[in-house]
Design a protein around this nucleic acid. Sequence first.
DNA 1: CTACCATCCTGGTTGC
DNA 2: TGCAACCAGGATGGTA
Length: 280
Amino acid sequence: MPELPEVETIKRGLQPFLEQKTIQGLQVNRQDLRIPIPDNTRQMIQGQYVQFIKRHGKYLCVELANGQTIVWHMGMSGSVRVYHDDKEPYEPQKHDHIVMTTDAPATIVFNDPRRFGMFYTHPTEQIQNTPPFSQMGCDALQSTAKTLYPQLQNKKSPIKTVLLDQAIVAGLGNIYVCEALYKARISPFKPANALSFSEVETLSKHIDEILAEAIQKGGSSLKDHRMTDGSMGYFQNFFGVYGKKGVACPHCTCDPEQTGGIKQVKQAGRSTFYCSEKQK
DNA sequence: CTACCATCCTGGTTGC
DNA sequence: TGCAACCAGGATGGTA
C-alpha cells in the first residue's frame, strides 16, 4: 500500500523514537516476507545506535553506527506502530512480524498481513550501488521537469504506466499517479514521449503538490495505512478520482448522466481512474 | 531493450 | 447466511 506520503508519514513518526536511540531488542516473529529476513538480522541490529532514518522512494533506510543499514519496505499492507506511553502498552497483534525496542523508550512494531514487505540489513557504503537503490530513479519529491522530461523520451508506454516505474521516478504508486495526472489534466493514455516539456512541467508541479498535501494529511488510509500512533491518515477524503468511478468530476460542468463521471479502466493490470473530459 | 504477465499473501467486498 | 470469485496501495523475475 504505502506510497511515498505514507512512508514519509511513517518515517516522521519513527524519528523521535528511533533516530539517535539505541535498539535494545529485536524480535523476529516471521522471516518469510517478500525477501526472507536473513538469519543474522538480529545480531546485526541488536545493541546498535541509530544515526539517521532516510527515505528513498517507498523505502526506509535506517543507518546504524556499525556501518549497516536496515532496508525496510512496507509492501502492500505494511504498517508501523510505536508504543511509548505506559497508558497504552504493546499487546501483540496478528501479523506483527518484527518487534523492536529502543531506549526512547519505545516498542516499534512492524505489522504486514500480506507479507509483501521487506526488512534486512546491508552495508551502508554499498547501498547506493546495490539494487533496488542502484536502479531507482530520482525521488518523486526531488524530481523536476528537467530530470523527468529526458527520461520519458524513449518511453512510448502510457504516461500512467511509466510513472509507476520506480526506475523513472521513485515513490509514486497507483493512487498518487492517478491523482497527479488528474490535477495536471493529462490523459493517462498519452504516450510518455508525447508529452511536451511544458506538460511535464505541469505534471511535475502537481506531483509535488499532491505529495506535499498528502504528507501534510498523514497519507491515505484506505485499508492498512496508519500513522505510527495508530491513527488514520485522511488524504483519502481529498481524492479527486481514485476509487470514484461514476462520481461527477467536481471540476467539470458536464453532466455525469451523460459522461458517466469518473472512469475506471485497467492499464498494465492496474486500475486507472480519470476524467475523460478534463484529461485529454 | 521494452512491455506484459503471473506470482508472492491475506482479508475485505461483491455477487450468486 | 454461505461460499466462491474477485480485488487491492508493490516489486520482481520470466517470457515474448
